[in-house]
Design a protein around this nucleic acid. Structure first.
Length: 667
DNA sequence: GCCGTTTTCGGCCCGACTGTTTTCAGTCG
């Protein structure tokens, strides 16, 4: 490439633009804040590392999970930026961290076994650092950085409005190392000594600190986020000058938790839409406000970004505000390869020097716009990519090579395999539960009240289980009768509906199944799960799960990780073994659609499927409203690249029952 | 630091908004 040329705007003189997602925006919310106070790092004064051959690793070397590895690399990215290193280097560490966080393989284990996975964004330098972490549980480079840059400095990046440049400045000029220092300096009026910080900015920093303390960034569950977004969208839609409102962002991608909401409104009068939005009584604070976009904070609610777009050109806007940052970067690179610059406003033609081609005398480049997203992807030479896939986890490559998955959808679900009635801890009678499932168009539903030992959920004694049978039989008789007479309720499946008798079988603390085999054998479907003794060591937990997986009577293993989002951590399991045995025995693994569980999560569901497991997607409904959980479960499955053929309850009733009946022959 | 149907060097995505500034840097999404 020849000299860049005099007239060309040199890229190197432009301000560095490396995205630094705040911790709560990073792809895995469980990664937590960037200050890993809880990472068990050795004292820097420790004796130098021993280097031992890979195979001789003992238990003394801590085993780091992918999440912990990723946290280390995110922190390196932050620290490098604070040190003022080349922005692209910091970006490279973050990209590697993203790759690590989403890798389906246990990276440390793979390194120790001598077969490190090939990860996008991991080249020689980072590969060596991963090897060192796998071998020794430590990384000298990271430890050196932590000596050079106080780790607490990273926490300052969480203060709204403070970025790496300012934080570095505060550190070098005022020796501010942590939030307490910052607060003290702001109160004393010392911050305004820094160039670019006025008294007003100082006040804003104090406000930011107060807010951080009083209301730490909280992520919403899907159900909560969805409700708020729909209400706001309806409010916007009600205005005559708004043609249509779209919900975009991570909610449209159906991430498991949502940080802020992104709304798009189609209107020819952006000014008045923004004006109404920003002055609405539900708005606590307007963070930013322009001629056609605004960022506000809702009263007791999340941050909301609204963008108003001209009618008839939603395509690039929707693409821009739906894809993850990484997905969008890939699309813009693709566009650039084809001689176009892509932004939310559309495509702008680039000349040979990479400058936008100015068309007409207006002085601006008129972008090429599209009405739909499909046209945008088509313009880039790609088939339509479903929102749930837009995370840069291989979907671009799959799209280019025509290997995008044919994702499962809600309409394909034929039955719900995990529901509760008021016989145990549900709140609705068996009849109403069944009737609701029937009217939703299912052809079957499994009633799975809890087993006896789970007394907190009013688990059923074998006697109570027997009492359920005639009630279920009578219901099915009525359904059959009505079907024969053609008296089906609105929405019912034309092939008829049956309530199947199941249970949610507790795997007890001492590793037994909660009912005797003779009783289990009489159920249509047995769903096993574990609610107690969650803190047991991995070996014991695995033994309990193995008992269930190898039982000829257990058909489905429910919410395998046992997590509750933001409340309870995952069980400590050997997942590889778990998937292998589930696949061998033909035990179905559940994607639990409750938005506080979403378990298996999107990474695990994909790995499980790839390991040969068949899945179910269930609502775990305890109330009528919770039948809607099925939609969350399905979107999780879609994020996991799951297809219809991977999902047992997308099978017609007879095939599903045949599949379940095969289990005893496989163990 | 990574990466390559513009390969081993020279690039690396795009724009809005804010604040303090007289033309732009920093932050954010």
């Amino acid at each position: 490439m020849p000299d860049a040329g005099a007239g060309r705007p040199s890229r190197s003189t432009r301000s560095p633009r490396v995205s630094r997602p705040p911790a709560q925006e990073r792809d895995d919310p469980r990664l937590g804040p960037p200050v890993p106070a809880d990472i068990d790092l050795p004292d820097p004064d420790d004796p130098p590392f021993e280097t031992r051959p890979r195979h001789s690793r003992g238990d003394a070397v801590p085993t780091l999970g992918n999440d912990q590895l990723a946290r280390i690399f995110y922190e390196i990215g932050d620290m490098m930026e604070l040190k003022g290193e080349l922005p692209f280097k910091a970006g490279a560490y973050r990209r590697a961290a993203d790759s690590i966080a989403h890798s389906p393989t246990d990276i440390v284990r793979a390194y120790r076994e001598g077969g490190p996975p090939s990860l996008v964004g991991v080249g020689r330098a980072i590969d060596e650092k991963l090897a060192e972490l796998a071998d020794t549980g430590r990384m000298r480079y990271h430890e050196r950085l932590r000596r050079e840059v106080p780790p607490s400095l990273v926490s300052l990046l969480n203060v709204p409005g403070l970025g790496p440049r300012t934080v570095a400045e505060l550190w070098s000029k005022l020796r501010i190392e942590n939030l307490a220092d910052l607060a003290a300096a702001a109160r004393d009026g010392r911050l305004r000594k820094i160039r670019g910080i006025s008294e007003r900015t100082e006040q804003r920093i104090l406000e930011g600190l107060r807010e951080l303390e009083e209301r730490p960034p909280e992520r919403l569950r899907l159900g909560q986020a969805s409700q708020i977004a729909e209400r706001l969208a309806a409010m916007l839609d009600a205005a005559p000058d708004v043609q249509r409102t779209y919900v975009a962002g991570s909610l449209r991608r159906r991430r498991e938790t949502i940080g802020d909401l992104d709304l798009l409104a189609e209107s020819a009068d952006a000014g008045s839409v923004i004006e109404r939005f920003a002055s609405h009584p539900v708005v606590e604070r307007v963070t930013a406000r322009g001629s056609y976009r605004a960022t506000i904070r809702l009263l007791r609610g999340p941050q909301v970004d609204l963008m108003v777009m001209p009618p008839g050109r939603a395509g690039t806007y929707l693409v821009h505000f739906t894809g993850s940052a990484a997905h969008n970067v890939r699309l813009r690179e693709l566009a650039r390869d084809r001689g176009w610059s892509l932004s939310e406003h559309g495509f702008v033609r680039l000349d040979d020097e990479g400058r936008p081609v100015i068309v007409g005398g207006g002085g601006g480049a008129e972008p090429r716009t599209f009405e739909t997203e499909a046209e945008v992807y088509d313009f880039l030479g790609l088939p339509f990519i479903e929102p749930e896939l837009r995370e840069d986890r291989g979907e671009i490559e799959a799209a280019r090579s025509g290997r995008l998955p044919d994702l499962i959808d809600l309409e394909s679900i034929r039955g719900d395999c995990h529901t509760h009635s008021d016989w145990s801890d549900g709140h609705v009678s068996m009849e109403r539960m069944a009737e609701t499932g029937r009217r939703r168009g299912y052809s079957y539903m499994v009633l799975t009240d809890h087993s006896r030992s789970l007394t907190i959920a009013r688990g059923l004694t074998p006697e109570r289980v027997e009492e359920q049978r005639p009630i279920i039989a009578a219901l099915n008789e009525r359904f059959a009768h009505e079907e024969a007479e053609g008296r089906m309720p609105k929405g019912a499946h034309p092939g008829g509906f049956r309530l199947l008798h199941g249970c949610e079988l507790e795997i007890t603390v001492d590793g037994r199944l909660d009912y005797p085999d003779e009783l289990l054998a009489r159920y249509d479907v047995v769903v096993a799960s574990l609610h107690v003794g969650r803190k047991q060591p991995r070996k014991q937990l695995m033994e309990r799960y193995m008992t269930a997986l190898r039982s000829p009577h257990v058909d489905i293993l429910a919410h395998p990780s046992g997590r509750k989002i933001g409340i309870r951590e995952d069980l400590d399991l050997d997942w590889e073994t778990f998937y292998r045995v589930a696949a061998e025995t033909g035990t179905l693994l559940e994607i639990n659609g409750s938005d506080e569980r979403l378990d298996l999560d999107d990474r695990r569901a994909r790995v499980a499927r790839d390991a040969g497991c068949m899945l179910t997607i269930d609502s775990d409904a305890h109330y009528l409203g919770e039948f809607d959980n099925m939609a969350w479960g399905v979107s999780l499955a879609r994020r996991s690249w799951i297809e219809k053929r991977d999902v047992a309850n997308a099978l017609p009733r007879d095939e599903f029952q045949r599949l379940v009946a095969e289990k005893p022959h496989r163990v």
